[in-house]
Each structure stands twice: as structure tokens, then as C-alpha cells.
Design a protein around this nucleic acid. Sequence first.
DNA 1: TCTGAAATTAACCCTCT
DNA 2: AGAGGGTTAATTTCAGA
Lengths: 146, 146
Amino acid sequence: MEETDAQIIRLLSADGRMSFTDLGRATGLSTSAVHQRVRRLEARGVVRGYQAKLDHEAVGLGLTAFIAIRAIDPSQPDDSPERLRHLDAIEACYSVAGEESYLLKVRVPSTGALESLLAEIRAVANVSTRSTIVLSTYYENRPIGG
Amino acid sequence: MEETDAQIIRLLSADGRMSFTDLGRATGLSTSAVHQRVRRLEARGVVRGYQAKLDHEAVGLGLTAFIAIRAIDPSQPDDSPERLRHLDAIEACYSVAGEESYLLKVRVPSTGALESLLAEIRAVANVSTRSTIVLSTYYENRPIGG
DNA sequence: TCTGAAATTAACCCTCT
DNA sequence: AGAGGGTTAATTTCAGA
């Protein structure tokens, strides 16, 4: 990865709405050159899209939790990520090394909603769950380092 | 939270670079009306910024891990999040309920880098660590549901 | 790959409702 | 709060180096 592309990526990681004009100024390139580079990074899949960072509390999703899951029947094929994909409370799904096989990050409005989500996860994926409740978020989704 | 604002938030959560013109079309409002609403959401802190979603592998940060940390000396004031803030491999820091007090999400290039990061975390914050390595990411930072 | 210029479209600000 | 209009600025495409 070239230094100019790396710089563009750092800038867009910190401000996803930065204009091509400003990106050009920051990198010392013309507007059309950065435009070309950003489009190429998007086409290659290095930049996968853009997203607003939200105050989840204000949006009514004030409860965040991490849910580690473990298959109950190890002989069954384990396609939990696909089985759980439709649950839009699940913001992220990772397969992990360790005692459990997957780790989910979820956002819900309340403990009641978390309770029903857990029931649904267990039913849909035939897994046991271990939840870790987030008490407060100090920082999150920080831009990549520079 | 009003339905129109909620809709704008969902749209910007899915596409942070969506134009005010398109937001207007999608919500049935004029360009200037959505413009006004988005600026208000930003001013209130509901929208905290915008960010490019990256392929971290392509950017040279192919190793993701979750690190749960626990204070070694419970009599010391526990300001780990501030002590660790300067480490830009740490993408997120949560305080959590459970056996450990904080959960970090980190991105590094290699296991070697993870090893030195762990050493630094333990030294800087005087904590013990328990790491969970991410093997693969099925989905992540999905837009909020609707 | 870059620049520079031209054409199109969007952002932004203001006023009126 | 929103619509409409006018000005400024950005995006996008293209020719040329």
C-alpha cells in the first residue's frame, strides 16, 4: 500500500464526508487525482463504504452487550453467522479462538429486549450464550492510527 | 425521536456520504429541510461524525483481538481508559460488568505486534489481560436496523 | 497517474410561508 | 419546520501530458 493511499484512508477513516477538494489539499494532489484514487480504493474493496457514527443512547439503543456463543450439539454444522444475520440488533459477528466459537456485539433498547434477543439467538442457532454487558463506552470506532 | 429524524439516521448509518438531495428524495422532504435536520442532529451530538468502513486486512491491520483487562491492585484508582487512550491500536474501550473491568478491541498487523501491545497495556495500566483472537469477521458495524 | 478545464450537480444561505 | 431560489462550491468527466 502506497503512502498516498494510506494517507487518504487515514483521512477518510477520521472524516468519511471529507470533500475531494480537501483531500486534495491535505495530500498535495489535485482534486481529480484523489477522486480517482478514492474510486479505485472503493473498487478494490479497501474502502467498503461510509457510515455515520451515532450516539446510540439518543437513538434508543442504549444497551450494548457482547454475547459469546457455543454450539450445543457439536455434530451439527455450525452456520450460526448466517442463521443470525437477519437479527438487526446484531451489529457484528466474529468467529473467535477460545472456549466459545463466536462473539456477537449487539445493541438493544433495554434489558427486556436483550432477554428476548438471547432467547431468539439460542433458538435460531441452537447455542448457549454468555453475555457481557457494556456499562459505558469510553471510545469506539476510533479512526486508524497515524 | 421523530420518525423523520430516525429515518435520516438510518440512511446515514447505511451510507454516510449520501447527499442531502438523495436524503430529501428518500424522506419526502426538500433538500434544505433535510440539511437543516442533519445539522441539528450533528449539533445535538446524535450524529457524531462520519467514517469510512475499511478492509483492515488490506490496510495492514489483519489481526483483530478483544482484550479483557483486570486491575492488579484494586486499591489503585482505575483510570485505564485514559492511560490507554494514546495507543492507537486500540479501536474501542468499554467498561463492562463481569469478571473483568474493561474490554478493549484492538487491531494490529501481526501476532508479534499483539504481543508488544499486550506488554504495553499491562505496563501502562497495571492490569492483567485475557485476549480473544478474532479468526474471521462475518459482519461488523452493520447499519442500525429498520 | 497526474493536471487542468468544462459541465453538471450539490451544498449552503436567505427569505417567505 | 419546511419550501423555494440564488450563489458558491464540489463532483465528475474528459483531453492531454
